[in-house]
Design a protein around this nucleic acid. Structure first.
Length: 558
RNA sequence: UGGGGCGUAGCCAAGUGGUAAGGCAUCGGGUUUUGAUCCCGUGUACCGCAGGUUCGAAUCCUGCCGCCCCAGCCA
């Protein structure tokens, strides 16, 4: 059991801390800023935080880092809660906000002033930038750096009371303007913002900065291990500085890990919203979006996502994971659990000339070839059926074992048919096939042990249900779209293709969100938003592995 | 030419001084009424490079190279 658990370096630290008695219970937190939707990258953080704590009987807070009103909203909070919950994690009563601690944070700020390690600066933002120096040159002390404790206290209180306009003053930590670590060059702690806050209303007009609020929120909640991404590594000395100065009863430890990047996608909230604003996608939950909401709507199972990030592990190395890994996790999950159905994406009509007109037979179809306990369903079979256009080739290569003139194929759960005649329109397009069926070859009967190399799927024309099927492909044309000068240059114009497909009648009651495999095509789900029984809208989750496509590719290459 | 990180096969990733797990991908093959699943098999990884310590190093030391992050009153 425990041997199956991942033992990445963070979990190792956690176990050591438990064994050494440093901690008796592990407490972590997932601290999103509610200024956008969660994406694949967050899945890894969520699974790490909730996973590492949960595995040891510890607990995890879902804490909204809502220190920048104006950019944050309730809508995003609700979406985040929904996503984390859907992923399979719960926080019980541990749903908190940085804003829950605004009073304590304010008190802590005054304490820093009293300690003489924080001061009110009255330089403008531009001046502060100038004084900060550069990566290679030290900064200079602000002329206001030497203000007395009393003056600082008075100024800071007046800041809180609303005596000043935005930007007039800022509270800064007094650390070291010459530090090689720029985060230590007197970072801002509080800024004036006369903005309504989504939770605290107009109570405050000064708001704490991330480093200050985050460190103390961790301490207030008794967080033992504060896990964050690599870009905050430089902030750790500041994190520790706050703890050293204020000596809270609980001392959390910050540990950084690398974020997860997925090939052909982006995980920048800013860029994601650009896509929405530009109309490239329909919203945060567009099935092409790498957001949790988008992936959920696309039909990716939560378990697949969890397995996917577990496989990647937790390290400090920059990574760009191939799509194939994600797709494999999805196929693995769906292959095991999704029931099978038949649907024809690009229909080609086939008339079985020797099949009695008007006759309908009910064929027994397995819901899952490897799991007989999932039962069977009936599929009506008749004289006229739809087959996939791709399953017929007039001039077929030797290895093509589907339908071709004079050739035979098995209709899955049906009969073996032979193509006798190809009917074309004036333009020369194949519009119909005339075939004959072999009555002795009905699936399930022992009357025929004839074997044909190919088996194709089909749907009876008179019983078919038409549906709008959305075929999705990667949103970008290059593996690392974030590296593009202009994102718009690398969006895949063919990320969405819509077709009118023909579904087997049992799909009449396809339910929103339900996922099935359309045999030989891939996994599909009824769109959670647009689908309805009389106007089915279906998303392609992922295709099946396609070794025929590979053979074709190889043929093309040679 | 400041500081902080990271470098093990195409992509991830174990490994913590004893002579390189695993997954995905690839390429073969078997089973198959989904060219799916499943099952076998398949990789000289100069462990970034160069020195050094050691009986012995991916693991320790030194130097070098490459990549990422930091100059928001964003998080």
């Amino acid at each position: 059991m425990s041997a199956a658990l991942p033992r990445d370096f963070i979990r190792q630290i956690i176990h050591e801390d438990l064994e050494s008695g440093k901690h008796s219970e592990i407490v972590t937190r997932f601290p999103p800023e509610p200024n956008g939707y969660l994406h694949v990258g967050h899945v890894s953080s969520i699974c790490l935080n909730f996973g590492a704590a949960g595995e040891t009987g510890g607990k995890t807070y879902l804490r909204f880092d809502d220190t920048n009103p104006g950019k944050e909203s309730e809508e995003f909070m609700r979406a985040i809660e929904r996503d984390v919950h859907w992923l399979g994690f719960s926080w019980d009563d541990r749903l908190t906000h940085a804003s829950d601690y605004f009073d304590q944070l304010y008190d802590a700020a005054e304490k820093l002033i009293e300690l003489g390690v924080a001061y009110v600066d009255s330089l403008s933002a531009d001046e502060i930038r100038e004084y900060r120096g550069t990566l290679t040159e030290p900064g200079r002390d602000s002329p206001h750096r030497a203000r007395s404790v009393e003056e600082n206290l008075e100024l800071f209180r007046r800041m809180r009371n609303g005596d000043f306009a935005d930007g007039e003053h800022v509270l800064r930590a007094k650390i070291d303007m010459a530090s090689p670590n720029i985060n230590l060059r007197d970072p801002a702690l509080y800024r004036i913002r006369h903005v309504h806050h989504q939770r605290t209303g107009d109570k405050w007009c000064i708001y704490p900065m991330y480093d200050f609020a985050h460190t103390l929120s961790d301490a207030f909640e008794g967080v033992t291990h504060s896990l964050c991404t690599l870009e905050f590594e430089d902030h750790r000395p500041l994190y520790d500085w706050f703890l050293d100065q204020l000596q809270p009863t609980s001392r959390p430890r910050q540990i950084e890990f690398s974020r997860l990047n997925l090939a052909y996608t982006i995980t920048s909230k800013r860029k994601l919203s650009t896509l929405i604003e530009a109309g490239v996608v329909t919203g945060w939950d567009d099935p092409r979006m790498p957001t949790i909401a988008g992936m959920r709507r696309r039909g990716y199972p939560a378990a697949a996502l969890r397995n996917f990030v577990m496989r990647g592990g937790v390290t400090k190395k920059d990574k760009l994971i191939e799509m194939a890994v994600l797709e494999n996790s999805i196929r693995e999950e769906l292959g095991e659990n999704a029931e099978r159905r038949m649907a024809v994406l690009r229909p080609l009509k086939v008339v079985l000339t020797n099949y009695p007109d008007g006759q309908v037979e009910m064929m027994q179809a397995l819901n899952h070839p490897n799991r007989p306990e999932l039962g069977t369903r009936e599929m009506p079979f008749s004289r006229t059926i739809w087959i996939e256009r791709d399953d017929f080739l007039e001039e077929a290569p030797r290895k093509f074992f589907r339908l071709k003139p004079g050739g035979e194929v098995r209709l899955r759960f049906g009969y073996i048919i032979r193509c006798d005649e190809v009917i074309k329109n004036d333009a020369g397009d194949v519009i119909e096939l005339r075939c004959s069926y072999d009555p002795d070859t009905r699936s399930g009967t022992q009357t025929s042990n004839r074997k044909v190399k190919g088996t194709i799927h089909w749907v009876s024309v008179q019983h078919a249900v038409a549906a709008d099927v959305r075929l999705y492909d990667r949103l970008f044309t290059i593996p690392d779209p974030a590296s593009a000068a202009d994102l718009m240059d690398v969006v895949n114009p063919e990320s969405l293709q819509e077709v009118t497909a023909m579904l087997e009648p049992s799909l009449q009651n396809f339910e929103k969100g339900q996922a099935v495999q359309f045999e030989r095509l891939g996994y599909f789900c009824a769109d959670a938003r647009d689908h309805s029984p009389d106007a089915p809208v279906i998303n392609r989750i992922v295709t099946l592995r396609d070794s025929w496509a590979k053979i074709e590719r190889q043929a093309m290459a040679s």
